[in-house]
Simulated scan of single mutants.
Amino acid sequence: MNDGSSTWGAAARGAVALYVLGMVGVAALAIHSVPSLRAIPELAVLSYPTLVLVAAANSTVLLAVFVALGAATAPRTGLHSHVFAWASGGSPDWDAYRRSLPLAVGLGAALFVLITVIDVALAPFTGLESVEAIGDATVLEDLLASVPMRLLYGGITEELLLRWGVMAPIAFVLWWVRNRIGEQTEEPPTAVLWVAIFASAVAFGVGHLPALASTFDLTPALVVRTVLLNTIVGVALGWLFWRRSLETAMVAHAAFHVVLVAVSVVAMLLF
Results as ranks from 00 to 15, higher is better:
Gly238Lys: 03
Ser100Gly: 13
Ala109Arg: 11
Val263Ala: 10
Tyr19Lys: 08
Glu187Arg: 13
Leu237Arg: 00
Leu107Gln: 01
Val34Pro: 05
Met1Pro: 06
Leu37Phe: 12
Val202Met: 07
Leu51Ile: 04
Met149His: 14
Val206Arg: 14
Phe125Glu: 00
Ala137Gln: 09
Ala28His: 06
Arg244Ser: 05
Arg163Pro: 04
Val54Ile: 14
Met23Val: 00
Ala213Gln: 08
Ala133Lys: 13
Val83Thr: 11
Thr190Pro: 03
Pro124Val: 14
Val259Met: 06
Leu51Gly: 04
Phe172Ser: 09
Ile156Asn: 05
Ala213Tyr: 03
His82Leu: 13
Val177Glu: 01
Ala27Cys: 11
Leu51Arg: 02
Ala30Gln: 02
Ala17Leu: 03
Gly25Lys: 02
Phe198Thr: 15
Ser200Leu: 11
Ile197Cys: 13
Leu21Ala: 14
Glu158Met: 06
Leu122Lys: 13
Thr7Cys: 09
Leu218Gln: 09
Val67Cys: 06
Asn179Met: 07
Ile232Tyr: 05
Leu152Phe: 09
Pro102Val: 00
Thr126Pro: 05
Leu101Tyr: 03
Val261Ile: 14
Val83Glu: 10
Val202Thr: 00
Ser100Met: 02
Val266Phe: 06
Met23Tyr: 09
Glu186Trp: 06
Ala213Glu: 08
Gly238His: 03
Val177Lys: 00
Gly182Phe: 12
Leu63Arg: 01
Leu69Trp: 13
Asp217Cys: 04
Ala104Met: 05
Glu186Asp: 14
Glu247Cys: 02
Val192Arg: 00
Trp164Arg: 04
Leu218His: 08
Ser88Trp: 04
Gly154Cys: 13
Ser59Glu: 14
Ile40Asn: 05
Gly25Ala: 11
Val54Arg: 01
Trp94Val: 04
Leu143His: 07
